[in-house]
């Protein structure tokens, strides 16, 4: 079923729920369309985009999965979308992890289900794997472009990729580009300092960061969670080949629980419909394989 075919399907049953101790985490529960519900899925925010997701992707996904039998929750972390900040004292990550737990508690209390799948893109993926390490109820995580350390092979590929671009040589010959700008700033007196990259990129190559991530991923795996990790070519400043997760976190024993994919031609948020359809099909297949229907 693709995004264009949904209009013939029966509308899903959707419910607004205010989750959390303060009843202020705004979420939508899309109820399963089958008599025997399959494992519930919790969809986490991507950055500051509210619960509908980029291109309304999470609404489409929630309805698709509900039609396949999964109850789905989409909700906003505190300070995002329609949820007010949950704690003035806690750092956002800590507050958000509590919020995920509160949503899982609601699912357990109201739907009688004690296992869940978390899915997130970018920061949502990071939240998913960190939470999975501290709650054994998380039976699976779908991590789309999680933040991982860069590796020797990453830098090698990145350098080769840059050297293949004609603009590098054009800039060299015409005294343009960031290298020349840095030289001008350093030796040219009043020249402005060039911006360092697109934005403040995460630097996860320190031993401390790698140790934290290895511990995080190992806990999620040891807890028994299945893991589908999907990387795109859209964050080529952070990852640029399929096996980078394995190379970046060499001490994690992923075993057969990790299914690793790399969509080189997709951008970070799956802007194009056919890229989203490919992602959705991949996740459908993974869910069917790891959490089959009991009907």
């Amino acid at each position: 079923m693709n995004e264009r075919q949904e209009d013939t399907a029966k509308p899903p049953r959707e419910q607004v729920v205010l989750f959390g101790a303060k009843h202020s985490l705004c979420g939508i529960v899309t109820h399963s369309a089958t008599k025997v519900p399959r494992i519930p899925i919790v969809v986490l925010n991507t950055g500051i985009i509210h619960r509908v997701g980029h291109h309304r992707m999470y609404v489409t996904l929630a309805r698709r999965w509900a039609a396949q039998g999964h109850p789905v929750v989409r909700f906003d972390f505190g300070g995002i979308g329609d949820s007010p900040v949950q704690s003035a004292e806690l750092p956002p990550l800590d507050a958000n992890l509590i919020s995920i737990g509160e949503v899982c508690d609601w699912l357990e209390s109201n739907l009688g289900q004690s296992q869940f799948v978390l899915i997130g893109l970018c920061s949502g993926a990071d939240h998913s794997v960190i939470y999975a390490g501290q709650d054994k109820r998380v039976a699976g995580v779908v991590l789309v472009d999680p933040t991982i350390p860069r590796t020797f092979q990453f830098f090698l590929r990145d350098t080769i990729r840059r050297m293949m671009r004609p603009v590098v040589y054009l800039n060299l010959l015409t005294a343009r580009g960031s290298t020349w700008a840095r030289l001008r700033h350093r030796f040219g007196g009043h020249a402005a300092e060039p911006r360092d990259g697109q934005f403040a990129q995460p630097q996860l190559e320190s031993p401390e960061a790698i140790a934290f991530l290895e511990q995080t991923y190992q806990k999620a795996i040891t807890n028994g969670g299945e893991m589908l990790a999907v990387f795109t070519g859209g964050h080529s400043f952070q990852h640029n080949y399929r096996r980078q997760l394995w190379d970046a976190l060499p001490n994690v024993k992923f075993g057969k629980q990790l299914d690793l994919r790399y969509f080189k031609d997709s951008d970070h948020t799956f802007t194009y419909v056919h890229h989203r359809e490919r992602l959705f099909s991949l996740i459908d297949d993974w869910l069917d394989k790891k959490f089959p229907s009991s009907d």
Binding site: E3, D7, E14, I28, R56
Partner: peptide, 9 residues
Amino acid sequence: TGDSGGNST
């Protein structure tokens, strides 16, 4: 659009 019913099309 958004959380309302229906599809983008």
